[in-house]
Design a protein around this nucleic acid. Structure first.
Ligand code: MN
Ligand code: MN
Ligand code: ZN
Ligand code: ZN
Lengths: 140, 140
DNA sequence: ATTTTATTGCAAGTCTCTTGCAAAAACAAA
DNA sequence: TTTGTTTTTGCAAGAGACTTGCAATAAAAT
């Protein structure tokens, strides 16, 4: 179970499993879209879970530090989104410009390109971001 | 001359060539790094050009509307950067995690991938962002 | 149960960027 | 050059995402 294995991750860094952390984790687990802090806050409000927006921010930051969550900064959204790693490997996304739906692109085509860039620029390449926007089937 | 051709672009949309717009354009022209609004502001201050930060924001937005400037949102910088198009075609960037230097990658490897994504997701793909971070030669 | 330490909520603060409005500057017409 | 019209500017204030300080609360350890 996810919650149990996460509890260990928390405790091994001197942290505690709390009511609010459980609620955020459970929400991310059952939602198949990357969520922003304000969306997490609004959804939990709706579900009668008492939580402050500040606590949402602190929670996603802890989950990121533990490596349980990825932070996404999509193009010109003006806010970060978070999604659980939980099994999934490195991948990218496409977002519909009309309805905002975000779809996983389960691929990363950049290994060769990274090599090329290292040769050309003499940089040691660390990370990259790659992200698409467009019109989803329903919004075309 | 860049300033002259830009003046025409401005005037054809009922806009005016002003002291502050000249200063921002000249700075972008002689700087070979994408600049943020606050960097433009600070640099012009240094050069004794009287300009308000608000005016810098409004200026880069006008230049973007005229298609003279590209807006970049690099990973987790928390502010946009702007660079003159002036000849250059669509390309991407790599930024050094230590010193912040930004280098142009004069390539875009995503035409084939765009086709693949359209086939797989049924999206009509519009735009994309692609951006690298790493360690530049001096900072390794 | 008691003690210790981490976490929470609230208020306030920071940072980037935007908006309203009166004063100043650019351009056009005389 | 002078006058009149319209755009642009600077200043102040506001919006939105995110962070920080601190006392009260809750989780874990004893
Ligand atoms: Mn994903
Ligand atoms: Mn560039
Ligand atoms: Zn990738
Ligand atoms: Zn590209």
């Amino acid at each position: 179970m996810l919650e149990t294995s996460i509890k260990e991750g928390l405790q091994s860094t001197g942290r505690r499993m709390t009511r609010t952390r459980k609620a955020v984790l459970a929400l991310l687990e059952r939602t198949h879209q990357p969520l922003s802090a304000s969306e997490i806050f609004a959804q939990l409000q709706e579900e009668q879970v008492a939580i402050d927006l500040v606590t949402v921010y602190r929670t996603v930051n802890v989950l990121k530090e533990l490596g349980l969550v990825v932070q996404l900064d999509l193009y010109q959204e003006g806010q970060s989104r978070y999604e659980l790693k939980e099994g999934r490997t490195h991948h990218h996304h496409i977002r519909c410009q009309i309805c905002g739906r975000i779809v996983d692109l389960l691929l990363c085509p950049l290994k060769k390109l990274t090599k090329l860039i290292e040769k050309r620029t003499q940089f040691v390449v660390g990370d990259h971001t790659l992200e698409f926007t467009g019109f989803c089937p329903k919004c075309q």
